[in-house]
Amino acid sequence: MPRLTRASSVALITATLLAGCSQTTPGQLARTTEPVSPDLTCSEFEILNPTDKVKVVNEIVKASPGDPSLFLVMLASVLCERAPEKPVKEVLLRLR
């Protein structure tokens, strides 16, 4: 059953990233106006819009826009499900 949940999460993240959509709540400033820090926890990372997630991942792995950051964003989201209190940087750098 966990695989179905994980696969569903990856599919949803992929669809959102490919569509380029982001959700904002009326009456609040969009998060894209704030600087993006690579020192976010996983729970903070999950509420970012897709563009900011890519920026965070690129900053952590020092990737250029042509690198496979979409895959890394999806991977970070899946790994963060199990450790919402851990920094995203720690989760991604453990993969090395």
Rank of each mutant, 00 (worst) to 15 (best):
residue 3 R to M: 14
residue 5 T to H: 07
residue 5 T to A: 14
residue 5 T to P: 05
residue 5 T to C: 10
residue 7 A to P: 01
residue 7 A to W: 09
residue 8 S to H: 04
residue 9 S to M: 12
residue 9 S to I: 09
residue 10 V to P: 00
residue 11 A to L: 11
residue 14 T to K: 03
residue 14 T to P: 00
residue 14 T to Y: 04
residue 15 A to R: 12
residue 16 T to H: 10
residue 16 T to R: 09
residue 19 A to N: 12
residue 19 A to R: 07
residue 21 C to R: 08
residue 24 T to E: 14
residue 25 T to Q: 15
residue 28 Q to E: 15
residue 29 L to K: 11
residue 30 A to I: 06
residue 31 R to T: 12
residue 32 T to P: 00
residue 33 T to H: 11
residue 33 T to E: 11
residue 34 E to Y: 09
residue 34 E to T: 05
residue 37 S to A: 09
residue 40 L to V: 02
residue 40 L to H: 03
residue 41 T to G: 06
residue 44 E to S: 12
residue 45 F to E: 00
residue 47 I to Q: 08
residue 47 I to T: 07
residue 48 L to I: 01
residue 49 N to T: 05
residue 51 T to R: 12
residue 53 K to N: 00
residue 53 K to C: 06
residue 54 V to E: 08
residue 57 V to H: 07
residue 58 N to C: 07
residue 60 I to P: 11
residue 62 K to A: 11
residue 62 K to V: 06
residue 67 D to E: 11
residue 67 D to F: 14
residue 68 P to I: 05
residue 71 F to E: 01
residue 72 L to W: 13
residue 75 L to C: 04
residue 75 L to F: 14
residue 76 A to C: 08
residue 77 S to E: 11
residue 78 V to F: 14
residue 78 V to Q: 13
residue 79 L to Y: 12
residue 79 L to F: 13
residue 79 L to T: 02
residue 81 E to H: 10
residue 81 E to S: 15
residue 81 E to A: 09
residue 82 R to D: 06
residue 82 R to M: 03
residue 84 P to W: 00
residue 84 P to E: 00
residue 84 P to M: 00
residue 85 E to S: 09
residue 85 E to H: 09
residue 86 K to F: 02
residue 87 P to Y: 02
residue 88 V to M: 05
residue 88 V to I: 05
residue 88 V to L: 00
residue 88 V to A: 07
residue 89 K to G: 03
residue 89 K to P: 02
residue 90 E to K: 13
residue 90 E to T: 13
residue 91 V to G: 04
residue 91 V to W: 07
residue 92 L to T: 01
residue 93 L to I: 07
residue 93 L to P: 02
residue 94 R to P: 05
residue 94 R to H: 14
residue 95 L to R: 06
residue 95 L to I: 11
